[in-house]
Write a protein that binds this DNA or RNA. Structure first.
Length: 272
DNA sequence: CTCTTAACCTGGACGC
DNA sequence: TGCGTCCAGGTTAAGA
């Protein structure tokens, strides 16, 4: 579910509920998600006030007032965060509960448990954050940067733009969509990208991420933003999940190819 | 260093 | 209804 637009939608949904709120208790209901969870570190945050919620790539960071630690959350493949009242019944896979002093709770729900919850240094020196690439919606991420980083690379361009140490937040859906719009085959060796293609790809990555954020994210399976609304960007997907169907542009059947262990849908005619 | 592969997990869809 | 198989939005550790 969560690529950059879904994480950003989550951040925006949580912000009005969490800013200025104080943590009463953090309950870790499983010993580990992607990695071990640390009860002691979580307990040290009791009584602390949330001052801001930031996003870095697909990570969420809850900043805490007067503390040199932050809460780091990753939603993995199936994670979501919801604001609930304490009397609401716990669902299976509600793994982390942050109880706030105003009575509300934030629950991290993650069936596949590929997500993560940790207390990390507020200076973002943690290994998971330290080596992240550029934010795709920043001016830093431009055609020249993409072009330069692809030189000499033989791996597929789709894998390159999904590499979080190059550019963050782009996952399987938006990589597939941006490559379609740019007219580039997903398995094209990254090093063979022309400057013109780099320009187009950069433009469409930014465009699609922005459009998806404005639409409230893509709803696949059960993605729900913290206020319970569903995103509706899925209605505008051109190739992702469309294998076997006619291309919306030229009617050629959309093909599916496994690239880097991930399903990759593309139009064999529109994308070269 | 670059690249590929397997692994971590559960649940839903589908075929028989 | 039930069982087996396949697939899924991400990431990284290990191996080639």
């Amino acid at each position: 579910m969560p690529e950059l637009p879904e994480v950003e939608t989550t951040r925006r949904g949580l912000t009005p509920h969490l800013i200025g709120q104080t943590i009463k208790q953090i309950e870790l209901r499983v010993p580990k998600l992607r990695w071990e969870l640390d009860d002691k570190a979580a307990a040290a945050l009791h009584g602390k006030t949330i001052s801001a919620i930031q996003r870095r790539g697909k990570y969420l960071l809850l900043r805490l007032k007067d503390l040199d630690s932050s809460i780091l959350i990753h939603l993995g493949m199936s994670g979501s965060l919801r604001i609930t009242q304490p009397e609401e019944a716990l669902r299976k896979h509600d793994h982390v509960i942050i109880q706030l002093t105003d009575g509300k709770q934030v629950r991290l729900h993650d069936p596949r448990r590929f997500g993560y919850f940790a207390v990390v240094p507020a200076d973002d020196s943690h290994a998971l954050l330290a080596h992240l690439g550029k934010e795709p919606l920043s001016e830093d991420f431009d055609a020249q940067y993409l072009y330069q980083t692809t030189r000499g690379k033989t791996l597929a361009i789709k894998n390159h733009i999904m590499n979080q140490s190059i550019v963050v937040g782009v996952g399987n859906i938006y990589a597939s969509e941006a490559l379609f719009l740019a007219g580039i085959r997903p398995d094209k060796p990254a090093g063979t990208l022309t400057e013109q293609q780099s320009e187009a790809l950069t433009t469409f990555i930014k465009q699609e991420l922005k459009r998806a954020i404005n639409a409230g994210g893509t709803t696949l399976r059960d993605f729900v933003s913290p206020d319970g609304k569903h995103g509706y960007f899925q209605q505008t997907l051109q190739v992702y999940g469309c294998a076997g169907k006619p291309c919306r542009r030229c009617n050629t059947v959309i093909e599916n190819k496994i690239i880097g262990n991930r399903a990759s849908a593309y139009c064999p005619k529109c994308q070269q």
